[in-house]
Amino acid sequence: MSAKPTARPAGAITDVAGLAVGHFTDTRRPTGCSVVLVPDGAIAGVDVRGAAPGTRETDLLAPGNLVERVHAVLLTGGSAFGLDAAGGVMRWLEQRGMGLPVGPVRVPLVPAAVLFDLMVGDPSVRPDAEAGYQACQAASSAAPAEGNVGAGAGALVGKVFGLSRAMKGGIGTASVRVGDVTVGALVACNALGDVVDPDTHRVLAGARADDGAPMDTRRALLAGQAPQGLLAGNHTTIGVVATDAVLDKPQAMRLAQVAHDGLARAINPVHTAYDGDTLFALATGRVPSHPGLLVLGAMAAEATARATVRAVLAARSLELSGQRWPAAHDTPVT
């Protein structure tokens, strides 16, 4: 039996200057939301890969559409109900004069994505506008908390063979620096599939075998083991990648697209019909030159993969209503 994996520091999305991250975690049940604030605004893009997404204000990020810059992105639990939290983020931004100038007012535009955590505890408890506002109030440029907080509070992973065999997911962050340019990621992982070490391919957290240790979902499926209890939209990994490089909207969208390569390295299976996997990209433009989109893409994929791994390594076990979902931190790894 090998040693338990640990959540080694890997940097944070707030290593990108000009960003702040805040979490709200609901103490009534495991759920919450997380906000990435960019007070000076950032060029934004998005890429939705999962077939069961829950999103808000994603169309405005398409190249060719009017809006160029946003001041916040929201990641939230609560399924589609959790999109209400974006209203609180809007209120917080409006109070500070941030948003798109439209005549005498500024309209804050808050792209958002949700994950499904309604099966964990009382489903009537989900993030609302006040939760979004409180996440903004808590925002800091310090490295954000990881694991069972914010949008990752109720996250589970490895649900292909039923919820009872799942393990605890969470939220994680990481960053990569090349020259003067930094790319960071914040990922809330509630995946249907397993989370694996991208370098060793060892399963870190996912569907569990009879002895409680993570099994290998990919191998089990290929061996003919049938999935059980699958519900559309009952999963999903969402996140934000950010850089201080100068990008336009098409380039920001491309960065979000390539960042999904990081999810593919760290989650198996990924982008399924039961997940709503969505990644946003933000570019603050504080560093005037960068090493090119090829290198930036490699950095984004790496940061996303590392943040996904940290989401489960920083998580802690959850026990609720007689059900226990262990975490990678305290589960034997063979």
Rank of each mutant, 00 (worst) to 15 (best):
K4S: 01
P9C: 10
P9S: 10
L19S: 13
L19A: 13
A20R: 14
G22I: 03
T25I: 09
D26M: 08
P30Y: 07
T31S: 14
T31H: 06
V36H: 09
V38F: 04
D40Q: 15
G41V: 05
I43A: 03
G45H: 09
G45E: 06
V48T: 13
P53T: 11
G54K: 13
E57K: 07
P63L: 09
G64T: 11
E68T: 12
H71F: 12
T76L: 04
T76F: 02
A86T: 05
R91T: 15
G99I: 00
V105W: 11
A112T: 10
A113Q: 08
D117K: 04
D122Y: 00
A129P: 04
Q137H: 01
A138F: 00
A138I: 00
A138L: 00
S140V: 04
A143N: 08
G147F: 11
N148H: 01
G150L: 00
A153R: 02
V157F: 02
F161W: 07
L163M: 13
L163N: 08
S164L: 09
S164P: 00
G169L: 09
I171V: 15
G172E: 05
S175K: 07
V178W: 03
D180T: 11
V183E: 05
V187Y: 10
C189I: 04
M215D: 15
D216Q: 02
L222C: 05
G224A: 06
G224F: 05
A226D: 05
A226R: 15
P227Y: 10
L231M: 12
A232D: 04
N234I: 00
T237D: 07
I238F: 09
G239P: 11
V241K: 05
Q257E: 13
L263P: 00
Y274I: 02
L282Y: 12
P288L: 09
S289D: 13
H290K: 04
M299L: 09
M299D: 04
V309H: 08
V309N: 06
L313V: 02
A315I: 03
A315L: 02
R324T: 14
H329P: 01
D330P: 00
D330T: 01
P332N: 05
